[in-house]
Design a protein around this nucleic acid. Structure first.
Lengths: 264, 264
DNA sequence: GAGTGGTCTAGACCACGTA
DNA sequence: ACGTGGTCTAGACCACTCG
């Protein structure tokens, strides 16, 4: 039934191993269609639920997806590129459009975004980083960015309400000067930033907001900006779908004379 | 049966939503035990398989895990920190121990690693980055790093065999000089590196090597080092479990006067 | 209407760790 | 020995999309 490879473990895992091998070695090509559940049921001579267990493994690995009633297909990842701003070099100031917008429209893609501004009780991870007291509120600028209509990432910025009350930051539109400039003009110039990158499975809300299928992890980039007095004035939370992003950057200086591995 | 929240969707999703809410608001604490399948079956008045469907959702979200025959438990993430070397400042050279080892033993943890050297037909993503011809082989130095006995990450470095034949790099032990120094001494000094970060679900082999449970994504850090002539001489592939790593770094220079969002 | 995957019930046996 | 979750079969009905 199942080839000699990987005869161990429960049947559904053997089936999953077999199908995975077929996909990896190209017998089922990228974007190609898998046999139907019914076909696999007869091929492996097991109950339909057993086949479904095998398929759900592959779905949760992010290897295949199902599209009813067409069947199961191999995912094809053509990841887009995410270039976090790693240096502080000046950038062309472009009113009404931020870096996301300008960068991608240069590439011939069609970037759009939604912005939604609200006053919220901040989530704990934000309250902590902004050093807010209990019950202290924050202004949230939440957006979803799209590229050619597809959700690309989410970007939620939080500001202590005490600092930005009545400023342009509370306008639900792009801020021509840039929100960082607004903060500076308010006397809260950011001079340091602390970045954290987490990897995890999305919450159902995030999966919904970004249109993610099962088996798609996200990178969560949390950026906390502080003034010279170490006062945190902004927390930005970016959520990046794992199937659409690669973070890349280049190092151009010579390696230090360091031991075996420079990556570890 | 299920509270008024989220009455939509199939039953197993409603159950999952209910349990997720209980976990998030702390009614089931971190590390705490969920009711057994049998208890949930009677509580929600559904078949055991329906309960299992709900639980498997949460498992694949990385929120809970099962430990037979004790039951299901809420995961508690105490992530360790991964600090990629982002600058090229000189490091204390320590024979027999690379940066991973020295850094963590300083922190009172017990780092260990296994090293395994072999000549392999390189995987396609490596062959491509090393610009190898078909059938050209590579030397692989594969290691698994452990912290206090727990798998911490994997680090596989690949070198074109033509470059390192007969050198210390083929010794299955730490190289006192450091492999980068060996490359330099061989006339292949790395002066540039290109880094890529991917996020995805692990392959079964990776999950096994790192002892990962379901619902745990990995970050894949691929580093390609090249000489001044743009000759790629090394590809390092780090695989980092998503539940044990946070990538952090700090920016200390002033922000540019850039638009709305500096993270995008 | 036909065929697909999605959901649900019913009931069975097994493997494993703890007591 | 017991209770836990893990696996598997059997069979049913539904929702959706396509021709």
């Amino acid at each position: 039934m199942v080839p000699s490879t990987a005869r161990r473990g429960p049947i559904y895992q053997q089936i999953a191993d077999d199908l995975r091998a077929r996909i990896i070695d190209g017998r089922i090509p990228r974007g190609g269609k898998l046999p139907t559940e019914a076909e696999l049921t007869t091929e492996y001579e097991v109950h339909r639920q057993t086949v479904r267990s095998a398929l759900s493994l592959l779905v949760n690995e992010g290897l295949i997806y199902s599209s009813r009633p067409q069947g199961y297909f191999v995912r094809e990842g053509e990841p887009m590129y995410y270039r976090p701003q790693r240096e502080f070099r000046p950038q062309p100031a472009s009113p009404e459009m931020d870096r996301f917008m300008t960068e991608h429209s240069d590439l011939g893609r069609h970037p759009t975004q939604t912005i939604e501004v609200s006053v919220v009780e901040p989530p704990p991870e934000v309250a902590e980083r902004l050093q807010l007291k209990p019950d202290e509120l924050a202004v949230a600028r939440r957006r979803v960015r799209y590229l050619d209509g597809e959700p690309y990432n989410t970007n939620d910025s939080y500001y202590p309400i005490a600092l930005v009350q009545g400023s342009e930051i509370m306008n639900p539109a792009d801020v021509a000067r840039g929100t960082n400039q607004v903060l500076t003009d308010l006397g809260y110039e950011q001079v340091r930033a602390f970045d954290e990158f987490y990897v995890r499975m999305p919450t159902p809300e995030e999966a919904d907001r970004l249109g993610l299928g099962p088996g798609t992890p996200v990178t969560c980039h949390v950026c906390t900006g502080t003034t010279a007095d170490d006062l945190p004035v902004r927390v930005a939370i970016n959520v990046l779908p794992g199937d659409r992003h690669v973070v890349v950057y280049e190092r151009a200086k010579p390696y230090a004379n360091d031991p075996d591995d420079p990556e570890g």
